[in-house]
Simulated assay, not measured.
Amino acid sequence: MLDRIDATSITTIQLYNQPFIRAFEMTPSLPTFVPATQLPLAIDNGRLVLQDMLGVGAYGSVYRAIDTQTHQTYAVKSLNKAGLNSRQCAFQNHEAQLHAKVSGHPNIVTLHKVVEENDCLYMVLDCGMEGDLFYTITERGGFVGNTMAIKTIFSQIASAVLHCHSRGVYHRDLKPENIIMFGRSVKLVDFGLATTEPVSSEFGCGSTFYLSPECQGGFIESVKSYDSAANDVWSLGIILINLTFGRNPWKQACPRDETFSAYAQHNDFLQTILPMSTELNEIVKGAFCLNPKKRITLSELARRVQACRFFTTPEFPSEASVVSAATAASQASFSTTMSGVYPTSNLHGPDDKEDSGVDLQSMA
């Protein structure tokens, strides 16, 4: 049984002032450059020369690479195979197989080839040079107050996930860090936690802030499995809040989180702490339906977001005046070239910690 809390004790100010830390501290927003002497010189029979490191984790790294024949730039994700048993190696191959299965969609990073050498599995990917969606939200003014930009980006993300689901692939780690900017477009990446199981019993897959209650084992009562597609829809609901308000609705969808518990008791609660329009409130209530069998479908979620006239209440622009200049800059330079990054969230070890919070801007 849920413990009751006083919902009125959670104010908008309290919510806005809570810190939000990136899902994995080892995953940088922008590349951490290292001397070339510390990098493997080249792979694929010398065709791909590794230039610098874009991200690093416990089990591997992501590099920027140049094709010596075409001079094309790629991102190369390196997964270390040294010391792994056959099951662990199969898991690495599984990521590449699932990514290849959904490649070819305009909003999914293309996996061009897989190279195995030097005790590593190298995945050769599109290289975006403008950072990830998290960086865009927190550092470039994001999309706050820009209804059309929110609709455009969310439509692309939803299209990518719909494509995955149509191919029988469920991502399970949807978050802004796994969405790369390519000019006015975005592309989904990182299938390290993806599955082909429509119903999964692998709990805790993903990042704390974006996990559905059932993916954590259940909210009110324990469950033995969960719907993989419905779990992705929940994560997309969180991303929609990220785009609209530059923050998360709660730290974790579990009983010990006061904000989420308040929402579970009264599903209009978010509208009392965020300047959310009635239209958007109804949409997110569908995405955050505690019963995954009754949760809004992905296609319906995408349709309703596009049909939504207003994401925020009329008074929100005055509340957001502090970010208006940043928003204007974002609209004016949406395709400004910046240094690239590729997430390595599934490269982290089991002891890595996540810092919870709500406000994305505060940690940038």
Rank of each mutant, 00 (worst) to 15 (best):
N346D: 04
G104T: 03
T337H: 06
V169K: 00
S345N: 04
Q271F: 02
N291C: 06
Q38F: 00
Q361S: 02
I10H: 02
L48P: 11
N291S: 12
A302M: 15
L15S: 11
H163Y: 00
C215I: 13
D173R: 02
Y263M: 02
N267E: 08
Q331T: 11
G218S: 14
F334Y: 08
M181N: 11
T152Q: 15
C205V: 12
K285W: 03
L301I: 15
P31F: 04
D126V: 14
A7T: 12
T327H: 15
L41C: 12
S362R: 06
I13Y: 03
A149Y: 08
P19L: 08
P28Q: 14
G168E: 03
A23L: 06
L162D: 15
K285S: 01
N291I: 00
L298M: 14
A326Y: 10
D126K: 00
A302H: 14
P31V: 02
E177D: 10
T27K: 09
Y135N: 04
T8Q: 13
R184S: 13
S155R: 14
A36W: 09
D227M: 06
L243A: 07
T12L: 03
S78Q: 12
G57K: 01
P317D: 01
A65C: 10
L2V: 05
A264G: 01
V341T: 13
M1N: 15
M129C: 11
I180P: 05
V102E: 02
Q72T: 14
D190G: 11
V62P: 10
P31H: 01
R87Q: 10
P35F: 09
S318Y: 03
V115H: 07
R64M: 00
G357P: 04
Y210N: 07
Y16G: 12
E300R: 09
A230I: 12
P28T: 15
L2W: 05
G218C: 10
P40K: 11
I21Q: 05
S78F: 03
D257M: 01
Q14T: 11
P198Q: 04
R64Q: 00
R87S: 11
V102K: 00
V114I: 07
G237P: 09
A100S: 04
G128Q: 03
F24K: 12
S335M: 07
I220V: 10
L133P: 03
V322A: 14
M363Q: 13
G57L: 02
F20C: 08
C127T: 10
E177Y: 05
V169Q: 03
D257H: 05
I21V: 13
T196H: 08
S261N: 07
L301C: 12
D52G: 06
L79G: 14
D52Q: 06
R304K: 15
D257P: 06
R140E: 06
M148D: 15
I10K: 05
N146S: 09
N178T: 11
P19N: 06
V223D: 06
G217S: 04
F310Y: 15
G206R: 00
N242G: 05
T196Y: 12
P35I: 13
